[in-house]
Structures are given as structure tokens and as C-alpha cells.
């Protein structure tokens, strides 16, 4: 019975070691924000974070996730107010919305390391995430907006600390 640390909570799950993390998250933990898209690491709909890195949960066995911090869309921020989530609403990004948890998690991994990405860096980082509704231009805009908001917040934070 593997023990998982997911969204800050320790949970024991009943699954064979080779079970894809995706299905454990969705079925056993009933966190359905993480989506199944291709089962082959080709679309990015199932993206979650393992220790802050974006991974495809359909290609990650539950055994590989043991001992690591797993973050899903449900745990990205306590109230769903991560700058990316706010930017996604501001830019009205989702159409069907199915791929968007994965898109947001993929983008969050980028912005956690680099809050000033170039357009080329965004494209290179996001190209593995398919959106069949083709919302790509809004995804790009939202990432740039969130990055800018994060830079502003961080600058304001530094000012506050300075004073």
C-alpha cells in the first residue's frame, strides 16, 4: 500500500506499484481535475507536479511518486487563485476546458523558475500540451499576464520588506 504525499497531505492508496499515478489520483483519491488524454505522454492533459517538476501522470507509476511531493490542479493554490488561474479567467482562455488543468500545471512549473519568460521559452515549454479547441494564443497571453503579475507581486513584496 504505497503512501503518497499529495497536495500537502499524506494518503495511503491501494494500488499495484506499476499503476499509473493518473488513475490513482482520479479514481482512488477522486481528484478528477487531472485528466486522461492519450495514455502515452503525447498530449499533456494529465500533467501534475512531482517535487515542482511538471510530469505526465499517465507515464509515472505510483511507485515513482512515493516519497515525492505531488501537486495537482486542486492543490496548486488553496483557493484556486494562483496567478495563472486568475490570468486564465482574465484572458477567458478555456473553451471545452478539458486540457486546461494540464496546461496550467505545465505553465506553473515554468513560472516557478522563471517569471520573465520569452515567447519562445513559453512555446518550447508548452508545445507538448495539446489543446484541441486551439486556445493557444490565449494560453500564451495568460502565461505572460501571470508572469507579469508575479513579477509585480514580487517587486511589491520586496518593497514591503525593504520598508
Amino acid at each position: 500500500m504505497p503512501n503518497l504525499n499529495i497536495n500537502g497531505r499524506n494518503m495511503s492508496v491501494e494500488a499495484a506499484n506499476d499503476t499509473p499515478l493518473l488513475w490513482v489520483i482520479r479514481e482512488q483519491l477522486q481528484m478528477t481535475g487531472t485528466k486522461f488524454g492519450c495514455g502515452a505522454g503525447l498530449c499533456g492533459a494529465c500533467t501534475v507536479h512531482l517535487n515542482g517538476e511538471a510530469v505526465r501522470s499517465c507515464q509515472t507509476s505510483v511507485a515513482d511518486a512515493v516519497g515525492k511531493k505531488i501537486t495537482t490542479i486542486e492543490g496548486l493554490s488553496a483557493k484556486g487563485e494562483h496567478p495563472l488561474q486568475k490570468a486564465w479567467v482574465a484572458e477567458q482562455v478555456p473553451q471545452c476546458g478539458y486540457c486546461q488543468s494540464g496546461q496550467i500545471m505545465q505553465a506553473a512549473a515554468l513560472l516557478s523558475k522563471n517569471t520573465n519568460p520569452t515567447k519562445e521559452e513559453v512555446v518550447a515549454h508548452m508545445d507538448g500540451n495539446l489543446c484541441r479547441c486551439m486556445t493557444y494564443s490565449r494560453i500564451q497571453k495568460a502565461i505572460m499576464r501571470a508572469a507579469s503579475d508575479m513579477r509585480t507581486a514580487s517587486a511589491t513584496g520586496s518593497e514591503r520588506r525593504a520598508t
Binding site: R26, E27, Q30, M31, T32, G33, T34, K35, F36, T72, I73, E74, G80, Q85, W88, V89, Q92, V93, P94, G97, Y98, Q100, S101, I104
Partner: peptide, 28 residues
């Protein structure tokens, strides 16, 4: 261009699609 009512559900993982349905006693 009022904000679309379904969008908030689609950025926090709470929108329920067919694949997300869970029923008591359900098998796969």
C-alpha cells in the same frame, strides 16, 4: 463580452465531464 459562466470551473479542476462521473459501487 461578459465573462463566460463555465470558465471558473475549468481553471480549478472542478468542472465535471463525463469521464469524471463517480457513482457508488461503480466498476470500470
Amino acid at each position: 463580452s461578459v465573462p463566460q459562466l463555465d470558465i471558473p470551473l475549468k481553471v480549478n479542476g472542478t468542472a465535471k465531464y463525463g469521464i469524471d462521473v463517480m457513482l457508488p459501487g461503480m466498476v470500470y
